[in-house]
Nucleic acid binder design. Structure first.
Lengths: 206, 206
DNA sequence: TAGATTGTTAATCGATTAACAATC
DNA sequence: TAGATTGTTAATCGATTAACAATC
């Protein structure tokens, strides 16, 4: 386990390893990089390198110890600490993200959603959705690190500016537009229409 | 415009160019690679190379002709032909994708959704949601190329197998599990929890 | 000619893959 | 010793960036 640069590709593979390791039959105590690679359709050497980066070593002949490996990956991904996020734009997509239960286990908590027009019949035990006017106050009260933008493209930049002015350090953008963020603010775009369109072109050979 | 290999990165940048070009003030007839690069926070040379790949050239001093460039990019992305898709799993996320209007303009039509329990009160003029039992018949009637998986992880592989057996050639997977697909079937994973977790780690410097 | 812009060729960088050496 | 497995060093590949030549 040497503290080299962490590549984004690695960060995206690690949860896959974790998921695989956790779903192994209970009695499995050791696992080889080769087995993981085969199960996840990855290169054997790739997996070995990844594991070497986040864990301090399996043993020859026997492979990695499952429990240790799980603990090492979770520690590397810092799952035990929790990062707070808020979401802006509670349409279908926004609500889907709010209601999705899979974020908590990776150290993330989407506390609340904001919308210009909060839905009234929010009956299910979901996260609250507040009016936009509450956003700045909310951010100054709680320690919010990540802002998720699910508003239509036309509003995205102004929402982004608002979030930045509230001290948010990373933005996850679902609006299909380019956003300008100041230096030091992390921006990740998740343009679903573009992803799907790219998939479509890859299908057409040549 | 030479017919080199198309990289996925290129495919994901092109729609951004398109969006930018279309939103330029109407009277703008020419545009330089440099201007595009600045607007989208990309490298100047990168943009020039991309444009050279999809278009046959701007003129020195004046840059690229806007209308031509738009037409060239759209032709390259084959926006005028339509690819049919279906979606399985009409929860919040599935419905968000079904209702999203942004796919059509990139040559994609999500025809219909399928669910084990189709919602009854599907009043808004959205796409229909049919019971799973209709899926094989539907695929053999219509020419469906892409399958979108929005079911819970536990069902994802069997849905995937079903889609493949129905002749689907590409799968867009939102379930947070690894899927095995046979050779020749394209698979793109869209694991939102993983993307967000990766963003979170990138924020923590060192 | 100078300047803006294009496109191409070469250099750099990073990630993946291949080859190998080490260990139990 | 042979075999399974690890980890590392070198090679390959692809994408981005830098440097340059061409053109109007």
């Amino acid at each position: 386990m040497t503290s080299k640069k962490i590549s984004k590709a690695l960060l995206e593979r690690l949860p896959g390893y974790l998921n695989y390791l956790k779903n192994l039959p209970e009695h499995t105590t050791n696992i080889s990089a080769k087995a993981i690679a085969e199960a996840l359709s990855l290169g054997e050497v790739s997996v070995r390198k990844d594991l070497a980066k986040v864990s301090n070593g399996g043993r020859c002949k026997v492979g990695h110890q499952r429990e240790t490996l799980i603990a090492d990956i979770e520690a590397f991904l810092d799952y035990s600490n929790v990062t707070n996020a808020i979401l802006v734009g509670a349409g279908k997509l926004g609500q889907a993200l709010l209601d999705y239960g899979g974020f908590e286990k990776s150290g993330l908590d989407i506390l609340v959603g904001f919308d210009v027009k909060p839905p009234k019949n929010r009956n299910h035990a979901g996260k609250p959705i507040l009016p936009m006017s509450h956003l700045p106050g909310y951010c100054s009260t709680y320690d919010v690190a990540i802002g998720i933008i699910c508003v239509p493209g036309a509003q995205a930049q102004s929402v982004c500016d608002l979030l930045v002015s509230c001290g948010i350090k990373a933005i996850w953008n679902f609006a299909p537009v380019h956003l300008d963020v100041p230096e030091g603010v992390l921006l990740q775009n998740e343009n679903l229409a573009v992803s799907l369109a790219a998939l479509r072109i890859q299908m057409k050979p040549e």
